[in-house]
Design a protein around this nucleic acid. Structure first.
Lengths: 240, 240
DNA sequence: TCAAAAGTGTTACAGCTACACCCATGG
DNA sequence: CCATGGGTGTAGCTGTAACACTTTTGA
């Protein structure tokens, strides 16, 4: 079995980790208000994880967490390793490949082909040194072509929300319908009609009632869970 | 600017070229007949380009056309080069990245990370030596993980047909509505209602009348063309 | 008793599906 | 004149979008 000819490249993975922050501190576009009580706009903000580069090139700039793929290492394993090493995160609830960026000059040090991944996490949990969650809409300039990667991640997430149960990645095991709705509103950046949303999402059969209620200074809310923990594509779009 | 550490890999592109063959020679599943005259089932067959491997590993087996990416070469440029060198094809009407396959053992010679592409061509035009168009449904075993790549290509195409003008890649510059419908029927592998299809596709505004008609032993058919030659995603799905 | 969020139905409209016949041409 | 595909309209139905008030709790 003859060895392959010489041409070889460095291969990296870069991971876009997206979570929802309920602080509501970020720049929100002034969405249309809607009639009172009809469409309560969520305060959740999509945030993405970035790390500050300790070395040139782009030293001091923010970048997506990434790493070179090791010999014999699966691409997905490298993505998981990045999350653990660079951000102190365990395996995310959802991880999928996005696209591969391979422009010859994307890294000034030489050719690096980067396979990008999208990871979802329910909350921006505490992360390692040098790492930070940035609101996607107010993210500083990112090194390399990472701004482009982040954009494609958000577009992918937005698209998949409409025809899959990918919201699973952004929620805890059990959640209320209002919390689910808040995920949709935050990611789609628009308000959603409560009654239509509930009708639609319950009719799809991807949710089941979970025992218990969420209590607070208001009427208790029924908890739900996703029936599938893996990504399931539905043919009937969610457009409430 | 410090050079990167040593870990490096071979990077390849593998291209799934899909075209429609009007021979109708292939294995077609017996689709539902439908009422007479309502749903004339197309005889077009999706075919994919494969090349016979001249050398180990998998010598003599069929495989997708592919090549190692050269130093300084864009990934897409490598895909175009494959089409030209291995199949004698010019730039296709549509080319998009599919996914990247990087399992450590996918190539027995050693680590090769493969970026796969989907290319579309109107017809299975004559190709170089060692290359052949195979009906997708009756394709022989493919080397490496190329069967998996082919499957994901067909799924991608099927999905995109419903919400984009990607059919552009499978048609000549001008075409009749029946020819367009035949593309949908061949790729989706089901029959489509003629009247509903025309209503829908014309209402989307992605087609314009072209001068001239297609003549034959029947009433002449109006020619159309796509208004955009680049991929345009529509929000309103085609489900006639 | 007040504030806050949970929960719930109906109506109008748009778009989808199903369905059959006449037309224009070439042979 | 016949075979072949081109071209057209309607009616029922289904799903969507718009819309406001009552309920239950904690403070």
């Amino acid at each position: 079995m003859s060895p392959l000819p010489a041409a070889s490249h460095r291969v990296a993975v870069d991971v876009v980790v997206i979570a929802l922050d309920d602080a509501g501190s970020a720049t929100r576009g002034g969405g249309t208000a809607g009639s009172p009580g009809e469409t309560t706009r969520a305060t959740d903000t999509p945030v993405a994880l970035a790390v500050r580069r300790p070395r040139p090139p782009f030293a001091g700039d923010w970048a997506l967490p990434g790493t070179l793929v090791r010999d014999g290492e699966h691409l997905e394993a490298a993505a998981l390793r990045v999350l653990a090493e660079r951000a102190g995160l365990g395996p995310p609830r959802h991880l999928e490949q996005l696209a591969t960026f391979g422009a010859p000059a994307r890294d000034p040090r030489g050719r690096v082909v980067s396979v990008s991944y999208l990871a979802l996490s329910p909350r921006p949990c505490g992360v390692a040194q040098r790492a930070r969650w940035w609101p996607v809409a107010a993210c500083p300039h990112l090194a390399f072509d990472h701004a482009e990667i982040l954009t494609s991640a958000v577009e992918r997430l937005r698209g998949k929300l409409s025809y899959s149960n990918v919201a699973y990645g952004l929620l805890p095991d059990t959640f209320t319908l209002s919390e689910l709705q808040a995920v949709y509103e935050a990611v789609l950046d628009r308000s959603v009609d409560k009654r239509n949303f509930r009708k639609k999402v319950l009719s799809l059969g991807m949710l089941a009632e979970a025992p218990g209620q969420r209590r607070g200074p208001h009427r208790p809310a029924q908890l739900y869970r996703f029936t599938d923990t893996e990504l399931v594509v539905i043919d009937d779009a969610i457009t409430a």
